[in-house]
């Protein structure tokens, strides 16, 4: 039985995606994120664009690509929401950079690792959103219920795992 193993840093950095996947998957995530809460309001707790950002960042293992992917997805998400364009863009840029940097250091194919990095990045995303709104924009009325954010992180981690396995099939080895 053939097993996939990486023996060198070079092999770890060889994953890439076709342009169609690189464009359509983030767009699809944003579209689903906009469509699903209408019939199912509870699903607004999901953050599919962040799941996709983390996946592409840890898979490409390129901090610049991760930063640009995060920025593009975040800005597109901002442009569909309120009030300022750049809040999600900044948060996801940072997460894309850190996720890509982590992807170089550790094996992100492992299930346990994926659980931890997803949970951690969702908490980090909430913290960055709070920081940008509360400190950078001076919005004193912006409050976050951290228990809710922990629950959100757990739910999104549970959703992210099957999505990661699904998107693993779109990887292109060079």
């Amino acid at each position: 039985m053939a097993t996939r193993s990486y023996t060198s840093r070079r092999e770890l950095e060889q994953h890439s995606f076709s342009p169609a996947v690189a464009i359509l998957v983030p767009l699809g995530a944003i579209l689903l994120q906009a469509l699903l809460p209408k019939p199912f309001p509870k699903l607004s707790i999901l953050d599919l664009p962040l799941i996709v950002t983390v996946f592409f960042a840890v898979s490409r293992r390129n901090p610049i690509a991760g930063t640009l992917t995060g920025a593009a997805i975040g800005l597109l998400q901002d442009s569909l929401s309120n009030p300022f364009i750049g809040v999600n863009g900044m948060a996801k840029s940072v997460i894309g950079y850190i996720a890509a940097s982590i992807g170089i250091q550790i094996d992100v194919e492992n299930l346990t690792t994926r659980i931890f990095i997803n949970f951690g990045f969702f908490i980090l995303n909430s913290f960055l959103i709070f920081l940008i709104n509360h400190r950078l924009l001076g919005n004193a009325n912006f409050h976050i219920q951290w228990l809710h954010e922990l629950l959100r992180a757990a739910i999104n981690t549970a959703v992210a795992l099957p999505i990661f396995f699904l998107l693993d099939n779109t990887k292109r080895r060079e």
Binding site: L35, K38, N82
Partner: peptide
């Protein structure tokens, strides 16, 4: 459609 975020 919606904005897709519970913060907005």
């Amino acid at each position: 459609g919606t904005s897709g975020s519970d913060l907005s």
